[in-house]
């Protein structure tokens, strides 16, 4: 078993531990860039399942401060996915 290939960090987008380690090795030294390149937390869960794990891994590998990494993350609405049909009538005030 290739451990790193089957350890799934981001379930929504199938980002594996191997993907993250390879990206860091290739020179990605900023967590936001790592996230954006690999699409960690871009899926339906918007990072609920993977953000902290990915941040921890990144902090460990690069020596950065975990708290700083997590504090830089921005939270935007909607906090849960909303079907478009909620916005196809009325509401324009």
């Amino acid at each position: 078993m290739d451990r790193e290939k089957v350890t799934i960090i981001c379930r929504c987008n199938d980002v594996t531990l191997e993907d993250i380690l390879k990206a860091i090795e290739s020179g990605i030294d900023d967590f936001e860039l790592l996230r954006k390149k690999l699409k960690i937390g871009f899926g339906p869960c918007q990072g609920r399942g993977c953000l902290v794990i990915a941040a921890r891994l990144f902090a460990r590998k690069t020596g950065r401060n975990l708290g700083e990494i997590i504090s830089n993350y921005t939270f935007r609405p909607p906090l849960v996915p909303i079907p478009v049909k909620y916005f196809t009538r009325g509401g324009e005030k």
Binding site: G43, P44, Q46, R76, P77, P78, P81, I82, P83, V84, K85, F87, T88, G90, G91, E92
Partner: peptide, 21 residues
């Protein structure tokens, strides 16, 4: 609303799609 309304008129399938961010 302003964004979604006209575009879902053009693409009706959008109505069943989930907005995530």
């Amino acid at each position: 609303y302003k964004i979604v309304k006209p575009l879902s008129e053009l693409y009706p399938a959008l109505r069943y799609i989930n907005i995530t961010r």
